[in-house]
Design a protein around this nucleic acid. Structure first.
Length: 211
DNA sequence: ATACAGATCGGT
DNA sequence: CCGATCTGTATA
């Protein structure tokens, strides 16, 4: 598998959000790799997207990373206790990003269990295992992604992406984003993507529930 | 200087 | 449904 170069990220967040499904997010800690397959994403489209931190081109210390070049990590603290990771899209000056909402563990599950629950994997219930990385705050905890990773270049070798199995369109759900009740008309924009067959999706859209 | 809400999560 | 917990942001 191979690491995409910067041109991969140089497209709209909407396009990138879909392209990232199936790719692997890799985190190197102490020379060990923690890897998760990206199974759920959300696009934040910047200037005209009321759900985005960068709405109206609001440029502050926090949002600065989104205004930078594509292919970097935008990591922020939410509710005083959880981190969320985004991948900056578009180009310098255009503040778009893709929120990584869920991963499916691929490698380093033992380390993830320790980081997330502070106990060994074999002491985890089925439910806890499925809860390892099925949310934006959860996956950051499991991958040890924190504020110090804000601005990290994904073309580097500490936190990056690898090409993975591309899901067929028939397995991709495209629907509305989660927890953006304040965003008025943007509430209804279909900016969320997930792999329907993955058990690690955070919130399912009833319309596409296969059961 | 102060007030307030939030791209979440886990427990009731 | 509610509270945790704290930073960023806006207002004055």
């Amino acid at each position: 598998m191979q690491k995409p170069d910067r041109s991969f990220y140089k497209c709209s967040a909407l396009e990138l959000a879909k392209k990232l499904l199936g790719y692997h997010l890799v985190r190197i800690i102490d020379n060990k790799a923690l890897i998760g397959k990206i199974v759920e994403t959300e696009a934040y489209m910047g200037e005209f997207d009321k759900a985005a931190h960068s709405y109206n081109n609001r440029r502050t210390k926090r949002t600065e990373t989104m205004f930078g070049p594509p292919g970097h990590a935008y990591v922020y603290l939410i509710y005083g206790m959880y981190y969320c990771m985004n991948i900056v899209a578009a180009e310098t000056g255009i503040p778009q990003a893709v929120l990584i909402r869920a991963l499916e563990p691929v490698e380093g599950m033992k380390e993830m269990a320790e980081l997330r629950y502070g106990k060994s994997l074999d002491q985890c219930s089925e439910r806890e295992i499925l809860g390892l990385t099925n949310g934006p705050g959860k996956l950051c905890k499991a991958m040890h992604i924190t504020g110090t990773d804000n601005g990290e270049d994904l073309c580097g070798d500490r936190l990056f992406i690898l090409k993975g199995p591309v899901p067929p369109d028939s397995d991709i759900v495209n629907t509305t984003r989660i927890n953006i009740d304040y965003a008025e008309e943007a509430i209804h924009f279909p900016y969320r993507f997930y792999i329907n067959s993955s058990p690690y999706v955070s919130v399912r859209d009833k319309k596409y529930n296969t059961k």
